[in-house]
Every structure is written in C-alpha cells, then in structure tokens.
Design a protein around this nucleic acid. Structure first.
Length: 245
DNA sequence: CGGCTTTGACCAGCGC
DNA sequence: GCGCTGGTCAAAGCCG
C-alpha cells in the first residue's frame, strides 16, 4: 500500500470466487481487518470526535445508517483506536480517516471552475493570475474526512452498489500500480473515491473515500442496490453494525 | 447519442 | 522560490 497510510488498524480480506463472472458465485469473508491512518490526516479518534456521529462512515458512503447503536471505534483520542485489540473477530472493523476540505469538494470544484472560466473569458494569463490572487484571499482549503479500507480482491474496482465514473488515473509513486479516481454518478451523490492496488501485496485493493455527504441530504440519497457480493456494511461492520434481533 | 474510459494538462499544497 | 506529488479537468475516443 502506499506510504501515505501509516498505521494499520484492521485488515479486511475478501475473496471473490468469480468476480469476473458477474460475481454470482462469489463469497465474502473477513479476515483481520486492518485500518490505517493517512499520515497527512487526522487521527482516527480525532476523526470520530470531529465527526458528529458514529455513523459518519456510513454517511460517507451514502448508506443508510443503521438504527442500532454503532458499536464502534470507541476511545482513542490519538492516532490509533483501541479496536485493534480485537482483530480476530470477523467483521471487526474498518479503516481510518483523513482530512481534507471539510465538505468543500464542490466548493473547491466551483472555485476551480470559476477560475478556469475566468481565464477562458479573459483569454489571458493575467486573468489566471488574478484568479490566483483572488483565491489567495479566500480562506484556506479545509480538509474532508476520508477513510480507507483494504480489500483482498482480484478486481480493482469493487462492486459496492453504487455507480461510479472514473475521472482520472495517476501513477503511484513507488508502486507499479496506478491509482484510479472515481466519483459517484448518482444524483446528489458527491462521494469520490480512489482505488489503488497495494504494491506490497498486489492481491489487496486499497479504497479511499471522502466524506462529503450532507446529513440533511442523506434521506434523499439513493438506496444502494445490493451488489452480488455484499455491501460495504459487510466489509465494514463496525460502521455498519448488524441489526440485533 | 449518452455515458463511460483514457490521458495529458493543469492546479494547489507541501517540503526543502 | 522551486520542484514534487496528489487530485481534478476536459477533450477525445470508445461502446452499447
């Protein structure tokens, strides 16, 4: 995995018997779910505290949060959270967080668009500079909480019930595997994620997603279609707790 | 024709 | 200030 992830929490392993075959016969199971911390982002505990609720991650993916109390990620003000104490438990947990402009993906975008528009309209470099200068006056870009999880899979882009459009691909430093950038194409869905394959263990896919879902919009968000081999809830049970009978 | 991927270019943040 | 890197844009092309 890329060096940006510093600390491992849990490690989620998932096998697809036949991903290529529509995943119809695939099976999913979890092994040590490993969580990791993005070095440039806030600690996991911080993430939780910074977030309003335990369901943050659920929201992050636009999934309807469970009504049951999230078990979870309790404790830990620091970089790591104590969940790592129970890694053997299947469905034990998920990954970490990071920060980046809190909820400003769109604002950044529009900012950028405006910037570009300006430069196009003016048709000169000067306008670009102006835009830049203008931007300098604006408040510093904040960070959106992000989190990531590792999945053992043969396919890079895991089916999670959402529609994604790939909007970019970059070579990853120190890794032969590129990183692909996706955005959710569902209306009102502003989630973005990037997916890369671990160069240390090529069988592992690292997915990192932002957390820009507006809680108020949550209800309006689409309900995920059940993919062939399970939802993120299955992959990240700590954040997607199973309903107790 | 619409939706998607590919890919080079651009931009901002960060470290030195 | 400069270079590097991650993230995004958008044109071009592909595909159903």
């Amino acid at each position: 995995m890329s060096e940006e992830f510093r600390d491992l929490y849990y490690y989620h392993q998932r096998f697809h018997d036949d991903d290529r075959n529509g995943g119809q016969n695939s099976s999913t199971y979890t092994q040590n779910l490993q969580m990791f911390n993005h070095s440039s982002y806030m600690g996991f505990g911080e993430f939780l505290h910074g977030s309003t609720e335990h369901n943050t991650v659920t929201r992050a993916f636009g999934l309807t949060p469970s009504t049951s109390e999230a078990p979870v990620m309790a404790g830990g003000d620091g970089d790591l959270v104590g969940v790592s104490e129970t890694p053997a438990t299947p469905y034990s947990s998920i990954s970490s967080s990071s920060t980046e402009a809190a909820g400003d993906d769109d604002s950044n975008k529009s900012k950028k668009e405006n910037q570009q528009k300006e430069s196009v309209e003016d048709g000169e470099n000067s306008s670009k500079k102006e835009a830049k200068a203008k931007k300098k006056g604006e408040k510093k870009k904040q960070r959106v909480p992000r989190f990531a999880f590792m999945t053992k899979s043969e396919v890079d882009h895991l089916e999670d019930g959402y529609r994604w459009r790939k909007y970019g691909q970059k070579a990853v430093k120190n890794s032969p595997y590129p990183r692909s950038y996706y955005r959710c194409t569902t209306q009102k869905c502003s989630v973005k994620k990037h997916v890369e394959r671990s160069h240390q263990d090529p069988s592992i896919v690292i997915t990192t997603a932002n957390n820009v879902y507006d809680q108020q919009n949550l209800a309006a968000l689409h309900q995920p279609q059940l993919p062939e081999y399970g939802l993120l809830q299955d992959m990240i049970p700590t954040f997607f707790p199973k309903q107790e009978p």
